[in-house]
Nucleic acid binder design. Sequence first.
DNA 1: GAGTTTGAAACT
DNA 2: CAGTTTCAAACTC
Length: 168
Amino acid sequence: MEPNKNPEVSPFTKFCLVSLSPLTAQRSPGMPMDIDSPFSMPENSVYNNQQRFGIFDPGSAIQGKKFACKCRKTYCLKLYCDCFANGEYCIGCGCMECKNIPECESERRISITQVMERNPEAFHRTQPVITKTCNCKRSGCRKKYCECFSSGLGCNSSCKCEGCLNTG
DNA sequence: GAGTTTGAAACT
DNA sequence: CAGTTTCAAACTC
């Protein structure tokens, strides 16, 4: 039994905390932020993402980034935020008071830890997602509200959807 | 563009 | 664990 200074955070969680930080993962821990980086505000600062990156333009703002959120209340630190849920920082998003940014890394890591305590699979980064499950009731699983449908997947036996039309 | 609907995530 | 609330995206008008 190895000595564990922080029994509430598993090695896997620690691994994810690092691997889910796209920029910090490429630095040594504690290494100061690049002065020329666009992320050079003091940690814990709160700001409107649009103020830094300009007006949100979903068509062109995101370069090399799959997601662009518009979160308003969650500081982009909940799984409601697509960027956060996919282990991405918010860059060029239309979100407000975003904390899913390197200078709020400490808060971000706390949130990641909380999410993973709730669901260790939340950040499924180590393996591709082949199946999803949904609980749709009204959409017939034929609209993007349905996670299966929106991922281009058919519903499966694990789904608890009602009136499913997304069978294959 | 504003308002509504939807279902996941979060909370109790 | 079940029911409820909150949330942001999808959708409709």
